[in-house]
Nucleic acid binder design. Sequence first.
DNA 1: TCAAAAGTGTTGTTCATACACCCATGG
DNA 2: CCATGGGTGTATGAACAACACTTTTGA
Lengths: 260, 260
Amino acid sequence: MPGRRVAQEKSQQTENWPPKVALAVDLVLFTVRNLGRRPELCVVLIKRSEDAHVGMRALPGGFVRENENLDEAAKRVAKVEAGVTENLELEQVAAVGTLDRDPRYRVVTITYVALIPSDRQELLASGGAAADPRWFPVSDLPPLAFDHTDLLNRALAHLRRNLLESGACFRLLPERFTLGELQRLCETVLGLADGQRLDRANFRRRLLREGRGVGRERGFAFLERAPGKRPGRPRPARLYRFVPEAFQRYITERRQRPLS
Amino acid sequence: MPGRRVAQEKSQQTENWPPKVALAVDLVLFTVRNLGRRPELCVVLIKRSEDAHVGMRALPGGFVRENENLDEAAKRVAKVEAGVTENLELEQVAAVGTLDRDPRYRVVTITYVALIPSDRQELLASGGAAADPRWFPVSDLPPLAFDHTDLLNRALAHLRRNLLESGACFRLLPERFTLGELQRLCETVLGLADGQRLDRANFRRRLLREGRGVGRERGFAFLERAPGKRPGRPRPARLYRFVPEAFQRYITERRQRPLS
DNA sequence: TCAAAAGTGTTGTTCATACACCCATGG
DNA sequence: CCATGGGTGTATGAACAACACTTTTGA
């Protein structure tokens, strides 16, 4: 009886249709601080100033407005609640809509993750809708409002899983960087302790594809020597530059391999 | 001025708050038909019977109700619109909320993908809210309503990217299957033409990890010999069984490898 | 008997891992 | 000088790709 179903849906539309399900975005903005000395993976948390969970720490988030895309909503929230605008490349993680995750109404949230620089832009704390945005080390997080601890962990897993494929590292580094800095960055994001650091030689080979120049021929060398050296502590290191075009070729090629 | 912001938000709450953004789920249900003879990757499409895009083909979809989770909504839609209930393991693909994607209201949709059996369950066409659900080969799709062609392509890419990691293949096969059947299935999902089929020897090695028993020792052998043979056309083939526990160990181990 | 698919072997290449070793420099 | 991190070489083994070969059956 398709006709009957249609009528039923139409009546629902006029009464309480569509259903009252609020749609929000939540942002998990990571950074690595103190890349030189004692690097630490940190995340932006705000302090809630509204009725539910007042005073608790939470992820920056907000409702999606009628006249904005999801990505626009996410960028607006990043700007208004955390003051972050620069170099912001958000990735969608997942939509979560557990029934009781917000005591006030039914809220379905879409989680975004990003790795952003923190040293060069002192953008936080300039204020916004939510109070007192601050960096917290992920190794020592306060209790979070709602299910935000869960969202954060999912986002972190997502970030770690495709750290290289997303090219997120390079948005955090200065334009010219040493391989040591890149490696420290990756290790910090991956949460590797000093005992289980990545092998230097293998790391540089993987990124430069030195072995008999295999990668270079196929255009996979997405790191390029940059002029100059970083005047180093024990020894000055070569500088490299990220080449987005070559990186894009590398990714698309990688995606085409059938299984693996 | 955090106080001012709070007041502002509260007033918005009473008036038109939260914003009127409808939340929907759309399902991309794939299957492989005629696995023996001439296998074909197909997808469920319904015929729209409501005001927008009437008569056009579209993905099964529906609004998320106030009292159900996202996954529940997806399963309900699968049942009501396509008649699919059995062996349904949905995976979230992405949330899409382009402003003008639905002419009626603002609709944000969450796309789910699944690979389901079609031969053993004649579940479709038993009717539901949407008219005439049918299988369509992805190689020859009709024009779809809204942005559903785009959603479908994204879902297909998602399915292909982690065909093995998701274990989706095995939910489509009978409990005992031959490696040939599994390979045909994978090739069909990947859309490989006859000229670019996967290498048999390498395929079976990858799945059985025969090379000096590497995988077996680490517990990665998630395929297990099953008794009996499939009485074959040219030659009877051995039967195998999928071992979910070993598969789970394999996946978690795989995820832990830092980079790659 | 013969086509066609199942099953196995072989070889070379690429990649990952784990090392060992020199180099350069600030203290 | 020497501790420390940058840069390079190398050996081993796993994974992958391409290809040749044997085996088994129904028609």
